[in-house]
Amino acid sequence: MHSGAVLAVAGWNKFVETFFNAQVMAKYLPDILYGTLVTVELAVLIVIAGIGFGLVLALVRALAIRPLNWLIVFVVDLLRALPPLVIIVLLYFGLPSAGWSPSGFMSTWLSLTLVLMAFSEEIFWAGITSVHKGQWEAARSTGLSFGQTLIHVVLPQALRLTIAPLTNRTIAITKGTALGTVVALHEILGMASSAVSNSYNPSPLILGAAAYLVLFIPVVVVARRIETKFAWKK
């Protein structure tokens, strides 16, 4: 055999042994699976609370109570302008001096929930305002109350428009659960990183990366379908 080919094979073997080490992967697989559970749990709780609170805020905003709306706009703007990691760090490292020590899970959940709340409020609000004024007037003139008009006439039309941007935003924010690793949360990245430092081998990171892909690729593919179905633009 040519010496070049021998070197290439040796290099390839070393690469596989380093990054796809079966022994190391087998050893840390349970850790990564545990981390995956934490990531899924966190992501589900963020999506439910974030979108739920966002919808509530948008509905409150529709009541058009001036001082309340200023407050909502201020909070939403603030949460859209701050990097999520800054909020997580502020809660985790800052709040203890105010007498409350939230766990890594709590800090990450609360931060990302607030961020998703802000973005979804904006999206819901944009959807609500996109419904023409005449629709409100027509519905009210048939005798529907404000609440009935909102729920039966405006929201069904508004929500259709919000689906595509909301899906995109939700994916981007739930991917942010990886930020929890900075505040000692044992989600996928956290588990993978500590496995790398324990084993002096990067294979657990590859395993962790694979776990993220397994979780999120289906979501992204579904999102792509939704996007074409409920296109935001013509």
Binding site: G176, P202, A209, L213, V220
Partner: peptide, 23 residues
Amino acid sequence: VDFFRAFPPLVLLVLLFAGLPFM
């Protein structure tokens, strides 16, 4: 596109920062 939409940027960053030195 789908790959990078699914992959958290922090994981990508850590993979490069902590993984590449092994090469």
